[in-house]
Every structure is written in structure tokens, then in C-alpha cells.
Design a binder for these strands. Structure first.
Ligand SMILES: [Zn+2]
Ligand SMILES: [Zn+2]
Ligand SMILES: [Zn+2]
Ligand SMILES: [Zn+2]
Lengths: 158, 158
DNA sequence: GTCGTTGATGTTATGATATAACAATGGAGT
DNA sequence: ACTCCATTGTTATATCATAACATCAACGAC
């Protein structure tokens, strides 16, 4: 379970392989990766950072695509529903999935200094919280796990 | 580790004992539980639900206290800094701490149907995520854990 | 006691995030 | 060609949060 994001890697390969996986997934599941959706994913993939909906929107505007908020939110809804992107609740921002293909419960390491985000994976039904939920009779749909702190680079800078 | 919130209990005792603990804590730490801060805590304590800042604000307004947003946000900043309340990131809302006194890493069970929230406790440095962070050289300050789903009552209703 | 500092509060204005509602388009199937 | 339905475009508005500055009261220094 590597925490992709803080380590150096071949990023253009990282982008193109994820795009290919997204295309395959859409073909298999009758989903349409339209130009604007594909472009949104590319923009998110360009950095291992979370972007706000309005950040995405300004990319769109600069490229002559739609420039009203719903355009960005709809693309993000599609990407998150399909599992191609995740919302970072603690930042009100969105990031491309770093583990496309594996059916995963994401956990994020979020640097509060430089906003870079690494995606790790949690255990499917992590012990304690799952136990508490069961004891309370609570039925879990989705679990948000976000660790806020400092990435290696920003620790060195401090 | 009880997940306080969904089970019936003596709620007025729950409120008054928490308020007393908050007073004690403030006295020990030279913090000022001013009337508006105390009132904010009372309002949050009245329900085991998360309230938005503007919900709190309308209570204030109805009681002749300040009615501009910063009044609510400042009270909430104080309560969260002191550990008397937590922000629920997934709802952009705030809830009184259900485990005041214990030094804890909160985890929440959030009913998406009725918005009620139970507060459980996680292990201090839970295995997997802590391990991933260590491997990445990431220094964790705070962990957000929020489970979204259905509370027992809303499951029955469905 | 007065003065200056400090933290709390009040207020106006604005910024940032997100959705409602409806019109226009355009392909898939008939 | 026609209909259906998902996607996209656009306007307007709702919701969440902070900046900036004025006022005030508590408290210690002098
Ligand atoms: Zn992922
Ligand atoms: Zn960093
Ligand atoms: Zn708590
Ligand atoms: Zn419920």
C-alpha cells in the first residue's frame, strides 16, 4: 500500500496509464468519458494535489470550455461517482484517484503547508470504527479518512 | 468506546455535566468561557446533531446576541480550539464533543438521512494509516475520520 | 488613579464553495 | 424523421467562511 504522491515517479506515465484505465472502465460500464470530463481528469492528474472546483473552472475558461460553476461540479460529480477522483473534505477540493482499478477505501495524507496530497489505502473495514458502528447498529456507506500534517519536504523547510 | 449519540440517555445530565467540565477546564487553562461562548456550547449540546454556523447564528439572533457571521465563527473557533466541539468536515457543521475530558481522536458516525451524529473514539495512532504515513515520512497533526451512512432509526424507516 | 495594552465583541463588506432551475443541443434507437 | 434522454450551457441564488476595522471592558504598569 504505497502512499502515492510525495515520492518522485514517472508522472507522465502515471497520467497516461490512469487515463487509459479510465477509458477502459467507461467502455466496460457504459459510461461516457466526454471531452470535458476527460479534460477534467487530465487537469486533476497533472498534479498530485487537490484542486478546488473553481480552479478546475478557470482551466476550462482558459481553454474555451464552459465557464459557469455547474460545468465544473458536473464533471467532478461524474469523476467521483465513477471513482476516478475523490473529494478531500478537509479542503473542499478534489483530486484524481491514485489507485484506479483497485476497489479501495481511500485515506489521504494532506500537507497543510503545500497542499500536496498522497493517497493511501485503509483496511476495508478498519477494526475499531467498524466495531463501534456495529455496536451502535449503524450501517456504514462510506468512510472519510484524512490525515492533516506536514509532508517530508515541508518538514525540512521548517 | 461507546458511540454516544444514537442511544437513549439522560440528556439533561449529559448537558450539565459537560458544561461543568468545560468550566473546570477553562479555569485550569486560563481560558474565558464568556457568556456567548457558553451559550454556543449549550446550543450545540442541546442535540447530538451537527449544526451549521448559521444555525447557531440564528439562535443567537433570536436571543438578542450578535447576529453577524463572525460572532458564530469566533465562538466555534474557541470551542473547537479548546476541544469542546468538533467540526464535521463532511457536513460543514459543528458538534459538541461527547467525550470531554478524555484526550481523544474523535471518529464520527454520521446519518446522512437525519443528520444525527455519534462520536466514537479511534485508536490514537491507528495501524495502517500511521504505517503509511511513517513510510512516506509524513508527520500527522490531526486525523479526520467520518463514517457516512444510516443510523438505526433511519434504517428502520427505510 | 490613569494610561496603554490586550483580548473580546460588534459590524460591514466580501470572498469561496455549491446548487436550483430551465433552455438548448445532439446522439441512440425506432 | 421523430422521440427520448443524457449532456451541456447559462442565469441566478443559496450556503459557508473570512477580512478589516471600530468599540469596549479588563488588567497590569506606572
Ligand atoms: Zn482512489
Ligand atoms: Zn508539503
Ligand atoms: Zn470529542
Ligand atoms: Zn438517521
Amino acid at each position: 500500500m504505497a502512499a502515492i504522491g510525495f515520492d518522485p515517479h514517472d508522472h507522465s506515465a502515471c497520467i497516461s496509464s490512469t487515463l487509459r484505465q479510465a477509458e477502459t472502465y467507461c467502455a466496460e460500464h457504459k459510461l461516457k468519458l466526454t471531452p470535458i470530463r476527460r479534460r477534467a481528469l487530465e487537469i486533476l492528474l497533472a498534479e498530485h494535489r487537490a484542486l478546488g472546483a473553481y480552479d478546475l473552472l478557470s482551466h476550462f475558461a482558459a481553454e474555451g470550455l464552459g465557464s459557469a460553476p455547474p460545468v465544473a461540479y458536473r464533471a467532478l460529480d461524474f469523476l467521483t461517482s465513477a471513482g476516478f477522483a475523490h473529494k478531500i473534505e478537509g479542503l473542499n477540493a478534489y483530486i484524481a484517484c491514485a489507485h484506479l482499478g483497485s476497489d479501495h477505501a481511500p485515506a489521504f495524507l494532506i500537507c497543510t503547508a503545500c497542499k500536496s496530497v498522497a493517497e493511501a489505502e485503509t483496511e476495508a473495514s478498519d477494526g475499531r470504527l467498524g466495531a463501534a458502528a456495529r455496536a451502535a447498529g449503524f450501517q456504514i456507506d462510506r468512510i472519510v479518512v484524512e490525515a492533516l500534517g506536514l509532508c517530508p519536504t515541508c518538514q525540512d523547510a521548517a
